[in-house]
Each structure stands twice: as structure tokens, then as C-alpha cells.
Amino acid sequence: MSTTTPTTQQNPTYSEAFQSGVREEMKLNPNIFILGTDLVERGGHFAQVKGIAQEFGVDRVKDSPISEAAMVAAGLGSAMYGCHPIIDLNFIDFSLGAMDEIINQAAKIRFMFNRPVPLVIRATSGVALGGAHHCNSLESLFAHTAGLSVAVPSRAYDVKGLIKTALRSPDPVIFLMHKKLSGVRGEIGDENTFIPFGSAHRVKSGKDAAIISYGYTIVSAQKAAQTLAEQGIDVEIIDLRTLYPLDTDTINATVQKFGRVVVADEAPMFGSITAEIAATASEVNFRHLKGPIVRVGAARAPLSANPQMSEAAIPSANDLVEAVKKVMSY
């Protein structure tokens, strides 16, 4: 980024995009409130709600004790009662202390009691520095759970558009924002820009093969696409944006168009979203495939704090280049 760009003309960051979407919806819906640790003064650990308490007051931005189970329970009960809470769990790793409230309770209320649960659980996710307890990729666990929707935006525009949609949704949403994207700037939509869940975004069109992914891996895929372009391979990149609902139409169309597909993320591959996509896409599109779908993901191991070990465990741009070359070899 050029240092001469005047700050006034800078696009908002990924975190600011969240603020923007939340502010707009809070103005319209007095029943939206945010509850989490260190929100009021600090604005959240990633500045995701900075300034909102000052604008809307501490009744609508509540600092919480470190009590994840009670935090999600507070969100769940108040959502059943008619509020539209955003429970900010800070890191998604801390949802593990509230798993019953999420998976046994929030996810199942509508099915059992026919009541809406308009609840957003926001958390920062993804692999970065931080080691074993701060880098769990749990998205497949949530997507696996009937009753939950899962958003995994990779850019500011999608953060805003998806959180606005989530804040009008009558169902519980797990809203995952990647650590390494917090400060990345980008355009955002206006107050009427809503991104539907289950709609993938074509980041880049291509002629030869496709990478289907989400979150920070989209950044790696863009780097890989550049390298591949230099070698004469034109790769398409699809950003899923939500993992449930999953945009199976786009996935199927992509598989049918290229027959050469790489599915990638940074979660352990065993039992992952990439497995789900590869399996269902193969079932539906077997005769369109020129060869097996190639998956790229993380090792089935906890993440280490040592940066080199952590990096080695998750896909690099180069791993994606190699995977695309493999599907090109069919």
C-alpha cells in the first residue's frame, strides 16, 4: 500500500467493516446488543466493535466476565425471548467452553420448539501465531451441526454484507473472522448491501482449473494464481463465503466447467469441509471430472507455537500451486 494515500480516502479494514454493518443494523433494530469481553473500552481484541459502546451506550455493548458458557446462554435465552444478540467469543477456541449451549441448545431450539433463535456468535478464527489453544479450526464442527449457519468472510465487503444478513436472520449464525485479515482494507457495500448466505463469490475467473476455498486461504490462492499465470496456467478462484449453507450450485458448476478442481482450507483435512465438498462434488459430477478432486489442508495435529512448525502444518501458496499442477496433469 502506498504511504502517500491520505487516510481519509482509505477503505475500511476488515474489522471496521464489521463495525459498519453492526452499527447500521443496531440503528434500525433496538433489540440488537453485543456481549463479550473487553468490548467497551478496548473495542474487542481485534477492534471489531471499537467505538460502538461510545455511540450506543453500555446497555447495548456489554462487557462480560470470562464466562463463555453463560455468555452463549445469555445470547440464546435472550434471542428466544426476542432480542438479536451478538455474542463475541473473542477467539473461536473459547467456544469450546460453551459447546453445549451452542450445539445442544441454540442449534436445536427451532427444530424442537418451533421458535426462532436470532443469535450471532462472532469469533476470530484461523491459524496465526498463538499455538495449540488459539488456532483451532472448528468451522467443520459447526457446519456439521444441524441448525447452525457458518460465515467465513475473506474480505471487508463480505464481512459487512454477511453480518448485515446475519442480523436479519432468525437462525443462529457462527460468524468467523480470520485473525490474519483483521487489518486488511477493502471496499464495503452501503446500508442496503446484503450478501445472502450460500452464495459463493468468484474472486477471479480462469480457464484451466479452479481453487475452491474460503477465509485466509483465499489470499494464498491469489498468490498461487499469480505464480501459475507465469507458468501459463489460468486458475479460477471461488470463495465460498459461508460453509453452511454451502453454495452447491456454484461448486457443481465449477466442477462441471473445469473437471480439474482443488479444494483448500487450513483446517485439519480429516473429516473437514474440504472432505465434504470433494465427496459431494464427486458424487454429483463424477463424469465431468478429469481426475480426483485434490484437497489441500492442514495436518491432523495441534498447531505449534513455533512459527516455522505452524506454517509447515498449513497450506502455503506453493502447496496450492502444486495441487493445481496435479489436477492439470490429468
Binding site: 499455538g131 495449540a132 489453544h133 495441534p302 505449534s304 507455537a305 513455533n306 512448525m309
Partner: peptide
Amino acid sequence: GGRGASMH
């Protein structure tokens, strides 16, 4: 062994 760092 470097797997944990300060917190572990």
C-alpha cells in the same frame, strides 16, 4: 520443544 511458547 518450542511447541508451546510462553503460555504452555
